[in-house]
Design a protein around this nucleic acid. Structure first.
Length: 276
DNA sequence: AGTTAAACCTGGTTGC
DNA sequence: TGCAACCAGGTTTAAC
């Protein structure tokens, strides 16, 4: 579910309400991708700092003292979402992490448990540093230019769709937005990354930024269960041009949209509008 | 070093 | 109706 827009929407929905909140208690449910790495009791009394996003991760500072750089790194995996509840209530079977604060209960719900909640003494120390270390550029980073994007793509022979999903060159686009951006840019997802011309690389970078920004405006995509921390769903899925639309006519040319599998993920595209 | 497959886990949908 | 097969927003790890 959660690609960059959904994670950023989630971040914005909890950052204001929780900044400066005091942790009263923490609770763990079933194991997630990795162990928390600290006794939940150790979180008691800590103060929540400004929440930041890197790729699809959220960093929640949990300070014991002003100079304390510790916190937890959160990932929503495939099916995770955060809810900020006004009052305490019993956890359901898929609620695997609770942070009870004096400004509400932050609850991670994640049926598939591909998500993660990891304690780190600092953002630039392990395990946080290791998890974030391999990430590619932030899509809206001004330092990411058409020239640098094109140069990076020149080193990759995999299909462009797989390179976008890998996340080690550019982060943020998952399966939905990678498909949508490639459609917008008119690029066949099977095209080898190193065969994109400089103009097409530039067009793709613009399409990625436009797609992610539009999704952000619409509150992300809610395919099944994504909600922001206040329970609002996203609306981008309603205007997706190709994602999940195999067999339906392309909105531009009317050709039947196709679904293929690349790197074990579905790719949706228009065989006429998107060229090699 | 770069690329691809397998693995993690649960639940909803599809098809026989 | 029952049950097997397939599908789903992600990423690490192992294997070529």
């Amino acid at each position: 579910m959660p690609e960059l827009p959904e994670v950023e929407v989630t971040r914005r929905s909890i950052d204001g309400p929780l900044r400066g909140a005091r942790v009263r208690n923490a609770r763990l449910g079933k194991p997630l991708r990795w162990p928390l790495g600290i006794d939940p009791q150790q979180l008691q009394g800590r103060t929540i700092g400004p929440i930041v996003r890197r790729g699809k991760y959220l960093w929640l500072p949990l300070q014991r003292a002003p100079a304390d750089g510790a916190g937890i790194l959160l990932h929503l995996g495939m099916s995770g979402s955060l809810a900020l509840l006004p009052d305490e209530r019993p956890p359901g079977p898929h609620d695997h992490f609770d942070l009870d604060t004096d400004r509400g209960l932050l609850r991670l719900t994640d049926p598939r448990r591909f998500g993660a909640v990891v304690w780190s003494n600092a953002l630039n120390e392990d395990p946080a540093a290791k998890l974030l270390g391999g990430l590619g550029a932030e899509p809206f980073d001004p330092a990411l230019t058409p020239a640098s994007f094109h140069a990076a793509l020149q080193r990759r022979r995999s299909p462009i769709k797989s390179v976008l999903l890998a996340g080690d060159l550019i982060v943020g686009a998952g399966n939905i937005y990678a498909c949508e951006a490639l459609f917008l840019a008119g690029i066949d997802p099977r095209l080898a990354a190193d065969r994109l011309s400089r103009p097409r690389a530039e067009r793709l970078l613009g399409a990625l930024r436009q797609t992610l920004a539009r999704a952000l405006e619409l509150g992300g995509s809610t395919l099944r269960d994504f909600r922001d921390a206040h329970g609002s769903s996203g609306a981008y899925q309603l205007q997706a041009a190709v994602y999940g639309r195999a067999g339906q006519p392309c909105g531009t040319c009317g050709t039947a949209l196709r679904r293929i599998v690349q790197a074990q993920r579905s790719s949706y595209f228009c065989p006429r509008c998107q060229r090699r």
